[in-house]
Simulated assay, not measured.
Amino acid sequence: MSSIFALVTRTTTATCFLLSASTSFAEPPRYTVSVPPLGSAYQYPIDLNKKGQIVAEVADRNVLIAHLCSDRICTPIPTLANDQINNPVYARAMNDAGWVVGLSPTKESMHGFMFDGSATVDLGAFAEDDCGGCSLVSYANGINSQGQVVGMSETVDGNFRAYRWTAGVMKKLPTLGGAYSQAFAINDHGHIVGSASTRHGETHAFLLRHGEMQDLGVLGTGDFSEALAINNRGQVVGNSATVIGGTPEAFLYENGVMTAVPSPPGAFSVTAYDINANGWVVGSTYVTGFPNYAGYVFDGVSAYDLNLLLSESDQGDWLVMSAKSINKKGQIAAIGQSKKDNTRKVLLLTPTSPVANASNGAPYAD
């Protein structure tokens, strides 16, 4: 999405930021940076919960292993396979209890898993083959506070369908008229978002609520959208093409309306990854100058380049390249690049002052 700020250089962005901040509900918070002890290998943040726990993927002997970081200690999540050294563990989401879901090899295939802090549970797949789903692939993408998990599973005919897993039972979810669906997130009301194929062959974001599958549509005249996150107020974020074949842009869906998430001043083309209980959105955006992209936060009115919100000392040390998750306290899990040695690290950004409390927002009417 272009704007009147699209040609503003990174040098003048700070001035524009100060002007735009006055139009928001309040001055945006400043953030301090802490770095989880994940070593020097390749690392990428996946999710963040209200406790400040981060789940991240780390390259260990060229194998990606999910790690759960809590209280400055990061521990690997066990795989479903017997070989705990040479098999990857991919994380996709975490709930506020610290339970993690993702994807891991099994003896016969790759299955979604749930790690409850002590054991890694195989969620299985649709029981449509000769061994109860053992040969079919499944993914676990989201988990709520009740331990309900959503994702997608391969079917015996080779398609993939969204599912909801509750207390050991995997239920196949509908599509929007096509053969494919995938669920990415579920809130504490049990409302599910994801993407699904339509009868016209397009892929659209969906909201499944009270058993009814709702097509959320697209921005502009696009032919693709996907919904990646939903909060307990029913606000949904994701990305949508604005023209056929176009690059997906961030959207916010609430009260039946899909709107584009604005770019920070001096930036363009934003992508959304997460939304917190207060309706704050995080993701990545393209900017002028090096390194061409940055993490951002949108508070419901104004969008800000997170690099301009870091404390003075942290601005001298880090470039925030993308923001992956945000909790209700306003803490953000991000990927950053050190200005000292150019290494990339998982970062935890913590606001120096309290952010808006979710109780001050309009309650979600179920």
Rank of each mutant, 00 (worst) to 15 (best):
residue 298 F to E: 04
residue 340 K to M: 13
residue 33 V to E: 02
residue 253 Y to E: 11
residue 312 E to K: 15
residue 141 N to S: 11
residue 159 N to C: 10
residue 84 Q to C: 08
residue 156 V to M: 04
residue 263 S to M: 00
residue 230 I to P: 12
residue 245 G to E: 00
residue 173 L to Y: 09
residue 160 F to S: 11
residue 204 H to R: 13
residue 354 P to M: 06
residue 287 V to A: 10
residue 89 V to M: 08
residue 228 L to V: 15
residue 364 Y to I: 14
residue 237 V to D: 04
residue 337 Q to A: 12
residue 171 K to R: 15
residue 107 K to M: 14
residue 133 G to W: 03
residue 111 H to Y: 03
residue 274 D to N: 14
residue 341 D to R: 13
residue 131 C to T: 06
residue 56 A to K: 05
residue 73 I to K: 15
residue 13 T to S: 15
residue 108 E to H: 11
residue 43 Q to C: 02
residue 345 K to G: 09
residue 174 P to S: 11
residue 277 A to T: 00
residue 339 K to A: 10
residue 86 N to V: 06
residue 55 V to K: 04
residue 78 P to T: 05
residue 20 S to K: 10
residue 83 D to P: 10
residue 47 D to M: 02
residue 361 G to F: 12
residue 111 H to T: 05
residue 264 P to N: 05
residue 64 L to E: 13
residue 108 E to G: 04
residue 207 L to N: 14
residue 329 K to P: 05
residue 102 G to K: 07
residue 146 Q to D: 07
residue 319 L to I: 13
residue 114 M to W: 01
residue 270 V to K: 00
residue 52 G to I: 02
residue 344 R to Y: 07
residue 182 Q to V: 14
residue 302 S to G: 07
residue 86 N to Q: 12
residue 112 G to E: 00
residue 206 F to R: 11
residue 241 A to T: 11
residue 174 P to T: 11
residue 304 Y to M: 07
residue 247 T to V: 12
residue 70 S to T: 14
residue 232 N to A: 08
residue 232 N to D: 15
residue 68 L to F: 12
residue 360 N to P: 00
residue 252 L to P: 09
residue 199 R to Q: 13
residue 251 F to H: 08
residue 133 G to Y: 05
residue 226 E to G: 12
residue 366 D to Q: 09
residue 302 S to H: 03
residue 145 S to P: 01
residue 286 Y to E: 00
residue 350 T to Q: 04
residue 67 H to N: 09
residue 308 L to F: 12
residue 231 N to D: 11
residue 291 P to F: 03
residue 298 F to I: 03
residue 75 T to G: 09
residue 272 A to E: 01
residue 9 T to M: 12
residue 338 S to D: 08
residue 7 L to Y: 14
residue 81 A to T: 10
residue 221 T to Q: 12
residue 276 N to W: 02
residue 345 K to T: 12
residue 56 A to T: 06
residue 93 A to E: 10
residue 31 Y to V: 06
residue 270 V to I: 04
residue 283 G to V: 01
residue 70 S to F: 05
residue 69 C to L: 03
residue 57 E to S: 14
residue 58 V to M: 08
residue 248 P to Y: 08
residue 141 N to A: 09
residue 113 F to A: 04
residue 112 G to L: 01
residue 158 G to T: 05
residue 306 L to E: 05
residue 330 G to D: 10
residue 353 S to D: 14
residue 363 P to V: 08
residue 22 S to N: 02
residue 9 T to W: 08
residue 115 F to I: 02
residue 324 K to I: 05
residue 227 A to K: 06
residue 358 A to L: 00
residue 318 W to E: 10
residue 12 T to F: 15
residue 82 N to C: 05
